[in-house]
Write a protein that binds this DNA or RNA. Sequence first.
DNA 1: GCAGTTACTGACAAAAATGTCGATAAGCAA
DNA 2: TTGCTTATCGACATTTTTGTCAGTAACTGC
Lengths: 203, 203
Amino acid sequence: MSISKNTSSRIRRSPEASRENILIAAERLLVRQGPQSLRLADVAKEAGVANATVLHHFGTIDGVQTALMEKMIVELVSGLMAMDVPDDPRAARAAAIQNLFDAFETKGAARLAAWLELTDESRRLRTVREAVQTVIRLKIGAEKADEARLEDAILVSVILAIGVGLFGPTLSELLGKPRDRARVAALRLLETGLEEAARKTGQ
Amino acid sequence: MSISKNTSSRIRRSPEASRENILIAAERLLVRQGPQSLRLADVAKEAGVANATVLHHFGTIDGVQTALMEKMIVELVSGLMAMDVPDDPRAARAAAIQNLFDAFETKGAARLAAWLELTDESRRLRTVREAVQTVIRLKIGAEKADEARLEDAILVSVILAIGVGLFGPTLSELLGKPRDRARVAALRLLETGLEEAARKTGQ
DNA sequence: GCAGTTACTGACAAAAATGTCGATAAGCAA
DNA sequence: TTGCTTATCGACATTTTTGTCAGTAACTGC
């Protein structure tokens, strides 16, 4: 009369693996359904664990959200830093822009940016601030960030990359175009526009 | 022994005025603190009315959010449509872009776009879809939307305008620049980039 | 094996958010 | 004034979401 409850009664992970499992589940939810669906019960269910397990590892549901932000920021930054710069300045520029767009192509990264911007809580902004400044100093400053022109180009490129990652597919489809249309058009604009600007400045 | 409760015991508005009062309060909250703070109690408090009053007019808190989206979309669209187009094609382009950026300069509009994009619920997207298509048909199609180039230019301009409205001030400050730096740089890019593209095409 | 540590869980408690209801009072029309 | 409609409200009920706790079970080292 005993019911067979053989199928693996309980999974026990290392603390790191468990946290990772939960954060990955949370990221899936963020991408699929937006930040407002990062509820304790939903995250736990998506991760395949009990609510209490999530709290055991993160303390509060807010802790999960903060940890997720930090993880995604780290991944985004390391993705941006991983680029290697060609020698030819023109090719370097193209590669950098391509790399930037790739980083925000993954739906999560762009949504992360929007999430951060919409969420006022300043304690979270500290993390971003540091990350962004690191990227700017290391990657960009490694070349020649002294020209204001170049800094402006970076600023606009980043905004456009995020914008395309976030709204590109939706707006493209709204116009009856393929989903990557916005990306293609944006890259073309940056190519011609920045080139032109560079020519005017000098270099 | 009666406590003086003279100070205006109750405000009674027309249904329209009351709805408007509540929606304006909700929009303030959206801009200041993001979508997640559009809670019943918060909205009611910001509007200076009781929770039950909000529900009396909108049924549910979700009704408030939907109504707010629709109101903001209407305002955004009418703002976009209000533009008048100069004769000179070059001036017309500049004016259109300027107008576009103005429309998303108001913090609310850009946040609305991000909110809509992050919120999956498709029932809400129908409204946007219609609004966007209306804008595109009427305003843009009134000129010459047949060229694919032009449509791409519009697509990118819209994305950049939203991106600047949403992230421009924050990212500019992160770089230690004035808050409108992103806007200035973006406008310059569009000016030179689109001009270049137009030259290549013809016109 | 055996003991100790701790990831994991269900059941429960607490808090927060939403929504209901009957009473009240502001305006309007007769 | 008087009566009617209904916007408004406080108090309460319901639902949703978060968090607590004590017990269970999976691994580790002995």
